[in-house]
Design a binder for these strands. Structure first.
Lengths: 251, 251
DNA sequence: ACACGTCGGTACGCTGGCGTACGCTCGTTT
DNA sequence: AAACGAGCGTACGCCAGCGTACCGACGTGT
């Protein structure tokens, strides 16, 4: 439509930017950039997906809840991915999870209708999106093991590092309460864990803010899952047909 | 088995049997039935998938391991599904997990090459397989929450019920040791948990065998995840173009 | 018939994380 | 300036599950 932006400028979302030019272009025709505020809910489980989101500088969490109201995060998605794989899998009517903006930031929103028709029309796009889905499945699968076997402190360190990678900032605006929901632990456990990390000078905190002071130290405090999942995304983005452009070339 | 079976006879795998006749036929042209023995490994993570498996009366577990050698099950797959979704997602070269035959039984094996080319040729088949993938993703996602929030006893009861549904037998041949690996707990924890369930007369055990004595009682001892995931598969199989032949559920 | 290896019952001390709860502090509102 | 609520530090008792370990029971092979 009458989008004023140049369609071949990088968006800041690595997945979109790594698409072949034609697919990138047609997707962006019906895309808009919107800032997703913290705690904004994109959809609830079972609620039809209207638009998928390609985060640019925020983070969206996929969350499942149990009947007794406890929530656990399945995955955090940032600039390396897309929120709404159910559309790719043909299940936009019944997404698996709740999608919640966790760190406020801009996202490229694409109508699910449009994505669906593009997926039908472009085998190339389909292949790429399925590859992304595979990476996300790996991500979630790692979470199964991580939640079973790794202590809260390691999981917390992992979460902070992952989120840092996605927003490219050391300062994360979020409360213990919400981090607790992501990790599936008590709020008090997060406070205790952060106190430990703070004593080790890996992070510092003030009300509503966690600052990562020593990323490499934090990495040693995190479980292997950080590296495993990170490498999976790196591999995905390296493998895509065209690697992410640093600037807009003449086409 | 050199004798080719009639291609429109039900195989016993509900997913295959629910396919449209033409897709079912072409898949079965390059399929063979083989008995997978207990603990047989179909592939290791990162190892190319040669053939996918549609279990008939056995169960295959998808397992991830951590660096320190502990394993956790991501999902158990039986007659309601297919082992090898990485092929569907275009990643047959690097499957996410280890696939291990957990309860011995027959499977329909289909060459991954063949499946891939059929997926290209038949949008219908593709849609169905993606829908299955979505259900499996839901299954794995539920495991993330379950492993975080539900106690071992509930998870154990859930595992037994799920497996019962998949093999249509009350008698499961497996050791505490292996069940422990599935649940991601100590062997001793499984023994203790089973002792509790046995005292409640929900199961009985002998060396290498667990017998489900009271399915509905066991269901009350299991977490919600049993129902949640079961309904997801029921919905999938109900939704497919042709419905699967009637099966006896856990009442 | 025997021996050996696998399987499983049980026990010990330990600890991570739970539920709960109290009160301080910071930041915003009135 | 005062008031209020959200955010957070901390504490207490409690327990599920851990690591380890020992030994008896079963069953398979010779």
């Amino acid at each position: 439509m009458g989008t004023p932006e140049l369609l071949d400028t990088p968006t800041g979302n690595r997945l979109i930017d790594a698409l072949p030019a034609d697919d990138r272009g047609t997707l962006r025709e019906r895309a808009r950039i919107r800032r997703l505020e913290q705690h904004e809910v994109l959809w609830e489980p079972g609620q039809r997906i209207e638009a998928v989101a390609f985060p640019i500088d925020g983070v969206v969490s996929l969350v499942t809840s149990t009947v007794d109201g406890h929530g656990v995060e399945l995955a955090t998605i940032g600039k390396e991915g897309m929120v709404g794989v159910s559309v790719i899998l043909g299940a936009r009517e019944r997404p698996i999870d709740r999608a919640v903006s966790q760190i406020a930031g801009r996202s490229l929103l694409v109508d699910a209708d449009h994505l669906e028709s593009r997926l039908d029309a472009s085998p190339n796009l389909r292949t790429i999106m399925l590859a992304y889905t595979h990476t996300l499945l790996k991500h979630v699968a790692q979470g199964v093991a991580c939640n079973r076997l790794h202590p809260a402190e390691q999981r917390c360190a992992r979460w902070l590092l992952t989120t840092r990678d996605r927003v490219d900032r050391d300062e994360l605006t979020l409360t213990h309460e919400f981090l607790a929901q992501m990790l599936g632990v008590r709020r008090a456990s997060v406070s205790e864990t952060l106190a430990v990390l703070q004593r080790a000078e890996l992070v510092s905190t003030r009300r509503g803010v966690i600052v990562i002071e020593n990323p490499s130290g934090l990495r040693e405090a995190a479980c292997e899952c950080y590296d495993v999942v990170r490498e999976e995304y790196d591999l995905l983005l390296r493998t895509l047909p065209e690697s992410a452009p640093a600037m807009s070339p003449t086409r």
